[in-house]
C-alpha cells in the first residue's frame, strides 16, 4: 500500500495539469497581495490636495457658522444659542487611511476559500480521470490488481498532493499581505488577528482535503472530467441554490451551509415558523426564525458526504470493466 501511494505521489508530482492548477491558485493569492498593496498605498498628491481642500471648506464653513451664530447671539432672538465651534476632524482624518491588517487578511484569506476548494476538487478529479482518459488504468491493474488498494492509494495521493498546493497558496497570500504591511510600515494589529487566522486556515486545509476526496470519488464513479463537472454544476444549482428556497428546512443538508459552518465556526439559516393567529380565526402568523449549524456538525456532514461519494466510486470501480 505504501509502495502504491509512493508511486501515485510520483505520478501526481509529474502531472503538468496539476502544476497548472497549483500555479493558478498561487496567482490568485498573489492577486490578493497586489490588491492589498493598492489598498495600503499612501495617499497620492491629488488625494492629499483634495482632502486639504475638503478640510479647508469644512473649516471655513465652521468658522462662518460660529461668526453667524455670534451675530445671532448678539440679538435678542439668539441669546440662547450655543456658539461653540463644532468638533472639526483633523486634516489627517480627511486623508484616506489603509485598512487594518485584520480586515485585509480576512478579506484576502476568506477570498481564497473558494479558489482553494475548487482547485482541490479539480486536482482530485483530474488525477483520476486522466488515468481513465489515457487508458493507462488497464495497464496499471495488470500490475496492481487489487482495485481497492489502487483506489485508496490514488485518493490518498490526491489528498496529500493537494495540501501543499493549498498551503503554499495560503502562505503566499498571508505572507504577502503581512509583508505589504511591513514594507508600508503599518501597524500589524493585535494578536487576536493571528488566532482567528490560524483557526480559519486549520479548518480550510481539511476542507481542501475533503474536496480532493470528493473529486477522486466522483472521478472513480463516472471516469470523465466533463461528467464530473456536469454533476457538480447540477448539484450547485439544484441542491445548493434551489432546494433551500423550495424547502428552507432542508438548508442544513446543503454543503455550502455546512462548509460555512465548518470554516466560520457556525452558520445561520432561517426557517419560517407559523402558529395560529389568536386574533383571526383560521389564519396563521408566520415569522422567520434563525437557526444555527455548528462547526462540528458542518465538518461531520462534509466528511460523511466525501465518505459516501468515495464509497460509490469504490463500488463502481470494483464492478465496472476497465479498458
Amino acid at each position: 500500500m505504501t509502495t502504491l501511494l509512493r508511486i501515485e505521489l510520483e505520478r501526481f508530482r509529474c502531472r503538468g495539469v496539476l502544476w497548472l492548477v497549483a500555479g493558478l491558485l498561487l496567482l490568485t493569492g498573489s492577486g490578493y497581495v497586489l490588491m492589498t498593496w493598492g489598498h495600503t498605498a499612501p495617499a497620492s498628491a491629488a488625494e492629499v490636495a483634495a482632502a486639504t481642500e475638503a478640510f479647508r471648506v469644512d473649516a471655513e464653513g465652521a468658522k462662518q457658522f460660529v461668526e453667524r451664530c455670534l451675530e445671532l447671539q448678539a440679538t435678542d432672538e439668539g441669546n440662547d444659542l450655543d456658539c461653540r465651534p463644532p468638533d472639526l476632524p483633523t486634516l489627517s482624518q480627511y486623508i484616506p487611511e489603509p485598512p487594518e491588517l485584520s480586515w485585509e487578511l480576512g478579506d484576502a484569506v476568506g477570498g481564497m476559500k473558494v479558489p482553494v476548494l475548487i482547485a482541490a476538487l479539480a486536482m482530485g478529479v483530474s488525477f483520476v480521470t486522466a488515468e481513465f482518459g489515457a487508458r493507462t488504468m488497464g495497464t496499471w491493474l495488470t500490475f496492481a490488481p487489487r482495485r481497492s488498494r489502487v483506489l485508496a492509494s490514488k485518493t490518498g495521493a490526491a489528498v496529500i498532493g493537494v495540501l501543499p498546493a493549498a498551503l503554499a497558496a495560503l502562505a503566499v497570500t498571508i505572507g504577502g499581505v503581512v509583508l505589504v504591511y511591513l514594507v508600508r510600515g503599518l501597524d500589524l494589529g493585535e494578536a487576536s488577528v493571528w488566532t482567528d487566522l490560524l483557526r480559519f486556515v486549520t479548518h480550510l486545509l481539511p476542507a481542501a482535503a475533503v474536496a480532493a476526496v470528493l473529486g477522486a470519488g466522483l472521478a472513480f464513479a463516472v471516469r470523465n472530467a466533463a461528467a464530473v463537472a456536469g454533476i457538480v454544476v447540477w448539484w450547485a444549482l439544484a441542491v445548493e441554490v434551489a432546494l433551500p428556497q423550495i424547502i428552507p428546512a432542508l438548508a442544513p443538508a446543503t454543503l455550502g451551509l455546512n462548509l460555512r459552518a465548518w470554516l466560520e465556526g457556525g452558520a445561520e439559516y432561517t426557517v419560517q415558523e407559523c402558529r395560529p393567529d389568536p386574533d383571526v380565526l383560521g389564519a396563521q402568523v408566520c415569522e422567520d426564525v434563525a437557526r444555527t449549524v455548528g462547526s462540528a456538525q458542518g465538518g461531520l456532514v462534509l466528511l460523511l458526504t466525501a465518505a459516501v461519494v468515495l464509497a460509490i466510486g469504490a463500488l463502481v470501480f470494483r464492478r465496472r470493466a476497465v479498458t
Binding site: T3, R11, A134, T136, T139, F143
Partner: peptide, 19 residues
C-alpha cells in the same frame, strides 16, 4: 497497452517496477 504519455519509457517502467 497505454502508458503515461508525459513520462519517458524508463520512468513508466520504473513506476511499474515499483508496484
Amino acid at each position: 497497452p497505454k502508458f503515461f504519455p508525459n513520462f519517458s519509457g524508463r520512468r513508466n517502467l520504473t513506476l511499474l517496477a515499483g508496484a
